[in-house]
Design a protein around this nucleic acid. Structure first.
Lengths: 247, 247
DNA sequence: CGTTTGCTTGATACGTATCAAAGTTGGTGG
DNA sequence: CCACCAACTTTGATACGTATCAAGCAAACG
């Protein structure tokens, strides 16, 4: 499952970090004053990862909090019997590793890049200080945790009562909100701008590759989706929404 | 067969609230100073609910945050097709409704009492002020949200890869940690001190009543559990743990 | 008491996992 | 540039787990 193909992204290794600008931009620090951004900037550290790299592993001791600056990352939960579960795909501005950092327990998931990624790290101690000093930062963390909890809750519901077909439909629609852009060749259609294998789709929906493939084939035959080279196109979002609802 | 003596609950309707004492006791306000507790106390309001009452419904507009003072509450997510999912069972000291209050969106779940319950409510506006003023309170909220997210994540994993048998075993073990007390008639055995129907177990594990019943019967025949009158006894926690792991 | 609510069991159908084998694609190195 | 390789996708046959439908039973309740 390790892909070494690296599509030519921006020259991450040459990335120039302007940490004050980063502080200004990132949702975590939204609403702070200019001088607060300046105070925070020195505590931020830039880091780059190639596609398919691991930012941290489930079980690792938590040393830092990460804010995604560029690229997408998936959170994977490993299981004893070898089957993995993808909990979420996160993009620029979002946090990873915050829970582990906060309660000083090992990372509960693995964070793996889906493409070339740049992140900003904050040392645990520094992050703690920020939470105490800036209520706005704490609020931003609370907001993000709430969003995550909502989404995970919805995933529980879906796994508990939906069939695989509906779960995949839902997942595709969710990804299209996260990373969709118009598909030029067909008005109304949406490209999911994340490289996704059938294995990924299976792990996001709690099923096997074979079943994911069968369902995706069915969707294709029904004219709901297209897919090639790791990209999925939703041809008919409305019909797919219908499938997500009623099966 | 099973000891079901329901411990006579305190007279909730006669409960005398000492809000300073409440503020001192509740994890949400842990670490604050005595005068801060005093300042907060007037913003707290006591409220009681009988068994099986609804504290709020999924979809309701969020008016207040609740801290459980006494009794257990289940969070239920309703689905279009009528099947419900129990996300969590919460007890004294824990928060409910915090997410909705924080991002001003309708409650994402229904909170229903499992027994007689007393709660402390905090108006949305007041809670907001506390978060800004007391970093410790924000930290307590973050801690609780993290715990919830961890647990929900584990639930996703379990639903995605475990069979029903393992999910039920896990759920019983989790509940025994939350609300277990020794079972007098058998050393090592644990009574889950929460009234639970098979329907509840089914909704907690994403299955149907019939399947929940079949699995529980199998557990009983294997000498793993006992159950009667809404109480479940885990006779052999070790063997049940084994089932949770390997099926 | 009858009535309701929860529990139990059985027969059957359906969805999905599993196992097996072959086809496809993109990248690598000769 | 081609041939090969590894990873990914596809299809089929079969087995298993669980939902569904149906019916009866036990216990709690007003």
């Amino acid at each position: 499952m390790v892909d070494t193909t690296s599509r030519a992204g921006p020259r991450l290794d040459k990335l120039q970090w302007n940490m004050v600008q980063v502080a200004r931009t990132v949702p975590l620090f939204r609403g702070l004053a200019e001088e607060e951004w300046a105070a925070i900037a020195p505590l931020l550290h830039g880091h780059c990862f190639p596609k398919d790299a691991y930012i941290f592993f489930q079980g690792d001791p938590p040393d830092a909090l990460y804010v995604i600056w560029m690229g997408r990352v998936k959170l994977v939960r490993h299981t004893d019997n070898g089957r993995d579960v993808v909990l979420e795909v996160l993009g620029p501005g979002q946090l990873i590793g915050e829970m582990a950092v906060l309660d000083t327990r090992p990372y509960s998931t693995t964070a793996q890049t889906l493409e070339d990624v740049a992140v900003v790290t904050i040392a645990r101690r520094d992050f703690y200080d920020m939470l105490e000093r800036y209520p706005r930062v704490a609020m931003a963390v609370i907001t993000e945790l709430s969003r995550r909890l909502r989404m995970t809750t919805e995933m529980v519901r879906s796994l508990a009562v939906d069939r695989v077909e509906q779960r995949i439909a839902r997942t595709l629609l969710r990804l299209s909100e996260l990373a969709g852009r118009p598909y030029d060749s067909r008005p109304g259609a949406i490209v999911i701008d994340i490289p996704l294998t059938r294995q990924d789709i299976a792990e996001m929906t709690g099923t096997t590759v074979e079943t994911a493939i069968r369902i995706m084939s069915r969707f294709r035959k029904q004219g709901l989706v297209l897919s090639a080279r790791g990209r999925v196109v939703i041809l008919s979002p409305d019909e797919l929404t219908e499938v997500a609802r009623n099966g």
